[in-house]
C-alpha cells in the first residue's frame, strides 16, 4: 500500500509502486481492482468514489496501468486520480487542465485556440457563463484566453471551455475565473515550473508578490500571464519568473533581491 499523501486512499486501484517514485515508460505502476458489489464495495457512495481517473502519462492496458513516460508517480486521493509527472516543454492536453490559449482562427460558432501543443483546441463562443447567441464575448485573433480543457483525446482536437463548474459568475462582470486576459505580458516556462506555480502559496509568486503587487494567470501548458501597474514591474516579474525555471531556489532568491534593489 503506498503512502497516502492527498486525502483518501485509492479506491479500485492497487499501486505497484510507491508514490513519488520514478516510473519508466512501459512500466506497470498499478492494477485496477474489481469493486463491483459481489467483490467489495457495497454502498452507492463508495461505488461512486471507485471511479479511477487517469491523468497524463498513464495508459490502461487490460487491468494494468502503465506509465507512458518517465516521471514521478502521483496520486490525488480527493479525486482518485493518478498521473505521472515530469518536467518537459511540450504540452499534451489533459482533461481539466487550466491553460492559456491564443485565438488563432475565428469561426461563426467557435474559435480555435493555440494551446502550445501539437494541435489546437476549439472553444465554443457559448462556452462562457451566461453567454447567449446574442450576448457573447467578442474574441479577436491574438486574444489571450484563460480556459480549461473539457475534452482531451489523442485522436481528436481538444476542446476548451470558460465555464467554471460550481460557479455562476457571468463572463460580463469580469469576476469569472476563466475568460479573456487583457493587457499584460506572457512568458513561456517549462511545464514543471508552471505546475509548481499553481501550488497554493508557492515560493516564487509569494516572494514576488510581497515586493510588487501583480496579477497573474498560470496555464499548465507553460504560459504565465503577468500584469502589474507599470511596464517596468511587469518586465522585472517576467524575468524573475522565467529565471526560476533554471536557477536553484536559494540562488533565485538572491537574484530577485539584487534585481529589485537595482530597479528601485
Amino acid at each position: 500500500m503506498p503512502k497516502v499523501e492527498n486525502g483518501a486512499a485509492p479506491v479500485g486501484l492497487q499501486f505497484g509502486k510507491e508514490m513519488g517514485t520514478l516510473a519508466l515508460p512501459g512500466e506497470e505502476i498499478g492494477k485496477l481492482v474489481d469493486t463491483t458489489p459481489p467483490h467489495g464495495l457495497q454502498s452507492p457512495q463508495d461505488q461512486k468514489r471507485a471511479v479511477v481517473r487517469l491523468g497524463s502519462g498513464v495508459t490502461q492496458r487490460g487491468s494494468s496501468l502503465l506509465s507512458s513516460k518517465a516521471g514521478k508517480v502521483c496520486f490525488d486521493g480527493r479525486r482518485n486520480k493518478t498521473w505521472v509527472e515530469n518536467n518537459q516543454k511540450r504540452y499534451v492536453p489533459a482533461l481539466e487542465d487550466m491553460v492559456i490559449g491564443v485565438v488563432e482562427e475565428r469561426h461563426s460558432e467557435d474559435v480555435r485556440l493555440d494551446i502550445n501543443g501539437t494541435d489546437t483546441a476549439t472553444l465554443s463562443s457559448l462556452a462562457f457563463e451566461g453567454a447567449t447567441k446574442k450576448n457573447r464575448p467578442h474574441l479577436d485573433i491574438g486574444s489571450l484566453i484563460y480556459c480549461r480543457i473539457t475534452r482531451a483525446s489523442k485522436n481528436m482536437e481538444a476542446e476548451a471551455s470558460c465555464i467554471e463548474p460550481g460557479s455562476n459568475k457571468s463572463w460580463v462582470g469580469g469576476e469569472a475565473l476563466y475568460g479573456e486576459l487583457k493587457g499584460g505580458n506572457v512568458i513561456q516556462v517549462s511545464l514543471g515550473l508552471a505546475r509548481s506555480l499553481l501550488v497554493p502559496n508557492g515560493p516564487v509568486l509569494t516572494t514576488l508578490g510581497a515586493k510588487i503587487p501583480f496579477q497573474s494567470a498560470v496555464g499548465v501548458n507553460g504560459r504565465v500571464w503577468i500584469q502589474s501597474s507599470s511596464t517596468e514591474h511587469t518586465v522585472l516579474l517576467s524575468i524573475a519568473i522565467a529565471k526560476a525555471d533554471t536557477m536553484p531556489a536559494d540562488e533565485w532568491k538572491a537574484f530577485v533581491k539584487k534585481m529589485l534593489e537595482q530597479a528601485t
Partner: peptide
C-alpha cells in the same frame, strides 16, 4: 506569428 498574442506584441 500566430502563437504570439496581441498582448505580448503590444507589451
Amino acid at each position: 506569428d500566430k502563437s504570439i498574442s496581441t498582448s505580448e506584441r503590444l507589451f
